[in-house]
Amino acid sequence: MTLENNPEILKVENLKAYYQMNYFGVSREVRAVDDITVTMRKNEVYGIAGESSSGKTSFIKVLAAAIRPPLRVVSGTAKYSFSSGAIDVAHATPDEVEAVRWKHLSYIMQGSMSVLNPVRRIGKTFHDFAARPLGLKGKAFEDRVVAHLDRLKLPPDVLRAYPHELSGGMRQRVTIGLATVCHPEFIIADEPTTALDVVVQKEVLNLIRDIQKEMGASVVFVTHDMSVHANVADRVGIIYAGRLVEEGPTREMFFAPKHPYTAHLVASLPRIGDTQQRPALEGRPPNLADPPQGCRFHPRCPLAIDICRKEVPPLETIGPDHRTACWRWRDVAPLVHATQPAGVMA
């Protein structure tokens, strides 16, 4: 499946968003998003991977136009091209954001238990969220919601239930329902399946994919679990310490990674039927208030050489749709997958 020719829906250019704090004359700056340039296309699922404190949450906060101090956009743009017109969410006014929120730009949040109001029935929550953007009232609104729930294989009874009466999987489906009831063009999914167990996780992922295909929406899928990306994303981008370090089509990222961090992420996945010792990455993620010089991955990198410690590697295009920021990308050997299928180019 190729989406290369689809029109762009989001274009992020040189985006820098820092947490700037100034208390008692001491100023501190955390460079959570540092110079990210990326484009996303219509109808595409773009996976973002990265560990906690890598800045991925800050990045999607900007994309979701939820920029609150101390997070500030220092420079760069994040432009959406919606059917209703273009908007740069990095510099939009609250009214402009209000006009696109839920209708065009929507957000599936992490932790379905804390998203839903525990003392409000699901139906009321739906009303709070969606009645205004949809512009429907009473029976017409309810019919629309029930039809949508039906598509998510939820019975209409859930509208009269409280969140605690539903199972984890059902709650997560309700939050997906909330995010998609207005048929948005762009959906941001932030770790939607992290707290779910394997059987339910697969159902929920399948559902997100189905809904995405049906509505023709673009999805940004954020999770640190590479095996989820392998099955959901069309393209995957890896964020490390506030920077995009590699981006490429899912298949290439898994079978021919060109950044040592990606190679490590893929190699460390345990698999059933294989008890070979898996290496764990040494060291800890860098402190973003004081990131290392040069390539930010070099203290943990097995391939680091002198230049890595001094100069920041540029994000080079090394193949169709494939970019990497590593001085030694040619030496990154595909570490794993003895069962690599034929026909994958290295």
């Binding site: 394997v198 996780q201 994919r209 095996s227 392998a230 059933i272």
Partner: peptide
């Protein structure tokens, strides 16, 4: 269990 063996194939 999500497998990475056919990454990108979207089998769910």
């Amino acid at each position: 269990v999500l497998s990475t063996d056919d990454a990108g194939a979207g089998k769910l």
